[in-house]
Design a protein around this nucleic acid. Structure first.
Lengths: 209, 209
DNA sequence: GTTCACATCTAAGCGCTGTACAGATGTCTT
DNA sequence: AAGACATCTGTACAGCGCTTAGATGTGAAC
């Protein structure tokens, strides 16, 4: 019953309002889009007063950070799964596809994730180092399939290039201008694969230069 | 003195409030960043009442569209200039560098441009067709340097891939995680070129399939 | 040159937002 | 039983996008 108070702040009145707020935010995000995601609306959705969130988040940006954090975790999980269902060289392609599909299936969440990143001018800290992060997974997979881990700068550039390509495609894929191409190629999935292939960034390369 | 009234709406009281508002918005954007760009602030900056802009723009989004439009024009001009100062195969690289440098030098404007695009789920209409648009310039330059204009889908995929890569890099280049790489490579410019080279999208390729 | 139609701009106001603060309420410790 | 304290509410403020009604300047018609 008595836990050390240094542990996570125990739920009091509400149970776990912090969790409830993040969940409410994600519900709103999916139902109404990013523009409807006001702090007050989140509080309403969670059934508390407009001031209640301030006991769990410094400001609105910190709440959105928490939402974005969950987004990165889900993305990492989906990419892990995609990697495991592919073999050999195709693992890299699978990672790229999984990334872009995540953005397509969760456009509002993806937007919150990068809005937070742009404001901080940085990807979330956990992206560095933690091997289950989406970013490191791309790098590690490149090493597994031929990239030379000793050529550090080269490896990192390749990872960044791939990441940039995937992010660019993720943002552009929904644009109306490309609809006719999707039709010509036989569907969205084919379109995404075709562009990724064109980048050549998601196929294993042996280190050069 | 008497012009056909079908021409552009003549300036009345203010002179040309529409122009003044767009200019004020760009001034605010540069000075205070995107978050300070409220309709009321723009009106204040232009010295008119908060309701005045509504006689020239349907809503705030339409004002931002006008700002974004100017952004695309400036980007197109800078890319044209970059292309003309390079020769042969290096024109494509020059285009990529010019694109990313524009985003680096005008981060707030670049953000407004793509915020508008994301909301509309489309790049601005002028990007299609008009040969001086940034997008078509990339495509045309690819054709000039070896791409087969007959292989339409292939050419368009190559253009999209390049565009996605450049946009991704433009958004990521400012992130703190990459600062150490910039130092290692001898500066930001070297970093940008290295990533673009890694993409391989901005070097002329002969059509293949 | 006066009048009239109309484009332009202002003043005031609505409902919303993010955030601050004071005080009420529930929970744990003693 | 009492005190300490995290938690939540009520209220308030300035700023936001946007609407409406009315004032004001302008070019055209007579």
């Amino acid at each position: 019953m008595s836990q050390p108070k240094s542990a996570e702040p125990r739920p009091y009145h509400h149970g776990d309002l912090r969790r409830a707020l993040v969940d409410a935010a994600r519900r709103l995000l999916e139902a109404e889009g990013p523009s409807a995601l006001s702090l007050r609306a989140v509080a309403r959705e969670a059934g508390v007063s407009p001031a209640a969130p301030y006991h769990h988040f410094k400001d609105k940006a910190e709440l959105l950070d928490a939402v974005a954090h969950e987004g990165w975790e889900i993305l990492g999980a989906q990419m892990t799964e995609a990697k495991n269902t592919a073999t050999g060289m195709q693992q890299l392609t699978a990672l790229g596809i999984a990334y872009v599909c995540f953005a397509r299936d969760n456009p509002a969440l993806y937007r919150v994730m990068y809005d937070a990143a742009r404001d901080k001018e940085a990807l979330p800290d956990e992206m560095e180092g933690k091997s289950e992060s989406a970013y490191c997974m791309v790098r590690d997979t490149m090493v597994e399939h031929g990239a030379d881990p000793a050529a550090e700068a080269h490896l990192e550039l390749a990872t960044i290039a791939a990441w940039c390509g995937a992010h660019g495609l993720a943002e552009m894929a929904g644009f109306k201008q490309f609809e006719h191409l999707k039709d010509e190629l036989g569907g969205e999935r084919q379109f995404l694969e075709a562009v990724l292939n064109h980048m050549g960034l998601f196929q294993a390369k042996h280190s050069a230069c």
